[in-house]
């Protein structure tokens, strides 16, 4: 966990300004919700914090570290998507362990964590099933 800080963050697509000079300071442990009509820049803000898009201007820092130019994988963040984003070509185990495998955890650790996660969502006996 850490503070998230946006400073003068602006995102422009061609001629549309999606987010205009946004300043935001989220304290550690704070629960923040963005509400607004569609097209007002909620998703764009989320995407810039996650690193999926780069802001046109301004800086983003997480725990005091400037992450504006870091790719998402180096920001230490997680994101739950609006649409289910299961990888259709991987079974349940591979889907759950995708991030762990990318971060080069050893096999036993991956198995242990996947088992725990699968247990929580009651998928323990379906780890080799494919998403439908």
């Amino acid at each position: 966990m850490g503070n998230v800080k946006l400073e003068h963050m602006t995102k422009r697509y061609d001629d549309v300004t999606a987010v205009d000079d946004m300043n935001l300071d989220i304290k550690d442990g704070e629960f923040v919700t963005f509400v607004g009509p569609s097209g007002c820049g909620k998703s764009t803000t989320m995407e810039t914090i996650a690193g999926l898009t780069k802001p046109t201007e301004g800086t983003i820092s997480i725990s005091g570290r400037d992450v504006t130019n870091l790719p998402p994988k180096d920001r230490g963040i997680s994101m739950v998507f609006q649409n289910i984003a299961l990888f259709p070509h991987m079974d349940v185990f591979d889907n759950i362990s995708f991030g762990l495998r990318l971060r080069k955890y050893d096999d036993e650790e991956i198995q242990r964590r996947v088992d725990r996660a699968a247990d929580i969502v009651q998928l323990e006996n379906m780890q080799d099933r494919m998403p439908e």
Partner: peptide
């Protein structure tokens, strides 16, 4: 291929190339 899948993969820890 839907953008969501690529975004999810990148959040999980791959680069664009990955």
């Amino acid at each position: 291929i839907p953008d969501g899948l690529e975004d999810a993969a990148r959040i999980e820890g791959t680069t664009r190339l990955g």
